[in-house]
């Protein structure tokens, strides 16, 4: 039986890790060189965040397990990232909207987690918030440019918002794992994050002339509980290729 804190670490770590995977996949595909560099920057920050949390998860689990073992050697159902970050790089609008939703979330989440009663979580949050502040500034600007740019960019952005909206439900779901950590002062009540998230996203969408979609209940098992979209299997096949093919090797 995994501890709640372990699961909590993995939910954060895996979300950053899989999003960084998607950004890494996009390297050399950006609309222009400067953007290639800044997307890679964001991806690198996210790997760094994931790494700190994988290290902590390894410490909690004990028995000589390493951060790499956790990052690379789990079953799909043991990865606890949000569905949102599994979503492929369909086009630059999807990449931007996915990033923007996560950046707003991480901004409010890490701001609150700076005061976590768990010193490691608090330290990771304090370090991450500086990076996330920059990520959000960047993705918000792109939301405005794309939403309020040309008719083409507006339509693509609206479409991406419509398509990705259903995955945002999961970000605020409070289950027993999370609830018990809130009571210990380790985690934060996600309803508080949700209120701020909705306000910020609303304001940005309005300024970007993009309409907020109707809320629909997304019925699959959430990623944070180990259920995944069809995209995830391909991510892991690729990500775990070398560690699966050469299980005895170290790199």
């Amino acid at each position: 039986m995994e501890s709640n804190l372990y699961k909590f670490c993995l939910r954060l770590a895996d979300t950053s890790f899989i999003l960084s995977y998607r950004l890494g996949e996009y390297v050399s595909h950006a609309p222009f060189l400067e953007e290639d560099l800044s997307i890679t920057n964001v991806g690198l920050d996210l790997i760094g965040q994931a790494e700190s949390l994988f290290k902590y998860a390894a410490e909690i689990k004990g028995g000589g397990i390493t951060d790499d073992d956790i990052a690379y050697k789990r079953e799909e159902s043991e990865y606890l990232n949000f569905h949102l970050v599994e979503y492929p790089n369909e086009d630059f609008a999807f990449i931007t909207v996915r990033q923007f939703f996560m950046d707003v979330y991480n901004y409010y989440l890490f701001t609150a987690l700076k005061n976590s009663s768990d010193p490691t979580i608090a330290a990771v949050a304090a370090k991450s918030i500086k990076e996330v502040t920059y990520h959000l500034k960047r993705s918000r600007k792109w939301m405005l440019r794309l939403g309020d740019g040309t008719e083409v960019s507006h339509n693509k952005t609206q479409y991406a918002v419509n398509e990705l909206w259903k995955y945002t439900d999961e970000l605020f779901d409070m289950d027993d794992v999370h609830q018990s950590l809130v009571e210990e002062g380790v985690a934060i009540d996600l309803k508080e994050v949700q209120e701020k998230w909705i306000k910020y996203v609303d304001d940005t969408l309005t300024e970007a002339t993009v309409t907020k979609p109707e809320h629909v209940k997304h019925s699959l098992v959430y990623g944070k509980n180990g259920g995944h979209t069809d995209f995830m299997g391909y991510v892991l096949t690729d990500l775990q290729y070398l560690t699966n093919r050469y299980p005895d090797a170290t790199w």
């Binding site: 950006a30 222009f32 740019g149 083409v152 960019s153």
Partner: peptide, 8 residues
């Protein structure tokens, strides 16, 4: 593929 982004 980036043309529409640069135009936006």
């Amino acid at each position: 593929n980036g043309q529409w982004v640069r135009e936006a």
